[in-house]
Amino acid sequence: MEEKKKQKKKAYNPHQMSRTSNVILNVLMAILAFVCIFPFIYVIIISFSDKSSIASEGFQLIPSSWSLEAYRYLWSIKDALFNAYAVTILVTVLGTIISVMLISFYAYAISRKEFQYRKQFTFIAFFTMLFSGGLVPTYIVITQMLKLQDTIWALILPLAINAFWIIMMRTFFKQSVPEGVLESARIDGASELRIFFQIVLPLSLPAIATIALFSTLGYWNDWFNALLYIENPNLVPLQHFLMKIENNLEFLRNNPLISNQVQSTASIPKDTAQMAIVVVSTLPIALAYPFFQRYFVAGLTVGSVKE
């Protein structure tokens, strides 16, 4: 029965394309996918190459000799590396939670018609999309008024609110959470908080999942706030930590006389170490992405309501 149905379906499918176009499209997609992933494969290969083979032959797809030296170098600084990982994970998790909370609170408030000042608050959020304070005033606010310098909050708070997402969420709340649902909840005696957490949030999962995803990526990849506000080596997040290693290697290679003053041994595998750094910083998030993506797609299909 089941099989028969399938066959029948196969025989008549208005969306099916011809065999040739199917093959062509698949090949095209395969090429595209390969082009996307090739540089990364190349980076992985270089990170495992021997530095002397790079010096003599340049970057090769199949180097004449392999080496784990680059990873051994990264292992030699593992304490700092793991610490940076911990900071990044803490900032990402905490930051995503705070960010999603703040954005959905703000967006929900300005999406409700009962809120008298919703236009003004919308405008305040919108205004920051057009004009920003600029780097130096932001720096002064964060270091001198809020005294966040050298704290974990300097990595979390500057990215916590994003005006564009607020506007997006507001639109989503307005369109996808019907007034009628809220009204019936109120008639059943639900408080405002209960309405928000038990009715509005579950209905808005797709939007929240989207924001959480972007915000996670934003926190994971952020290095600029660390560059500005962090001096304590124990609070440096992963991306900035790796960037610093790379900059330092570059600087010391260009200034051999200085590198002599600050290193006991001069044999850091520079090219390969840079590539190993890229691998180490990208791989975890690349591996985590498919899981996120599943949730993300599932989230998008959740929660339509009939009135």
Binding site: L135, V136, Y139, L227, L228, E231, M243, K244, E246, N247, N248, E250, F251, L252
Partner: peptide, 12 residues
């Protein structure tokens, strides 16, 4: 402050 960051950070 690290080699690559020093001037950026000092400037600000």
């Amino acid at each position: 402050i690290d080699w690559g960051d020093y001037m950026k950070k000092m400037q600000i």
